[in-house]
Amino acid sequence: MREWDTCKAIRGIWHVPAARALVAAILAVMSSGSSSFAGSGDPAAGEKLYGNCKTCHEIGEGAHNKVGPHLDGIIGRKAASIEGFRYSGAMEKAATEGLVWSVENLDAYLQKPREFIPGNRMSFRGMSKEKDRADLIAWLQSMARAAPAADPARIEPDTHGPAREFTDIVLAMEGDRDYGEYLGSECVTCHQITGQVEGIPSIVGVPRDYFIRSLFEYKTNVRRNEVMKLRVANLGNEEIAALAEYFSSLEPQ
């Protein structure tokens, strides 16, 4: 039996906490000696596939945390281990039960993120093709020796474009959380308040800076989506500050 099949078979008992810690430990050991799976991927193809990830994850020299944690050294990394990044409760729990990002675990996670760790907040539906996952993982592995920024939790000031300047103005403002909750009732018609992702990204618990900058990027056509452009058209600084205050204060459920 290939390790992938083993992994598939034991995924079913991942929800049983006692079994889970044991399974995670076994997988971690298995992965350390495993290279057959990783060797099958094409890093060049994987780099293209990484386009799916890069809105939220940085990797490479000087990588920072964005909406997701930076991915330097992700293979073999303990889950929820990047200091200064706010993980979901579900991811923290998986980490305390011993989850390590072995090739096999990452493969299972990338296939169906929400089944592998229910309640985690990664805004990605999953990658169904085994080859795609192998390619992507091969590329992530090829980036293994890249060094993250000295302080990855710090958000590097993006000095390009007007969105950054507007963002700084609003970042300095204090948002009215109650007002944000009312205004946010419009957002949650599509972006689910639980942080669940079913075709529309989660905005629950995203850092203020990222939230504010994203809205200004819609206003300034850096990001293009007609629905979002419309929604932000009439939002002033006070409204954006309020929304950022509200959504950054929430935890995915």
Binding site: V188, C190, Q196, G199
Partner: peptide, 14 residues
Amino acid sequence: YEESVGWYAGITAD
């Protein structure tokens, strides 16, 4: 179209 599917999940949860 995919956005509409996401909206359906969102509004029915709301």
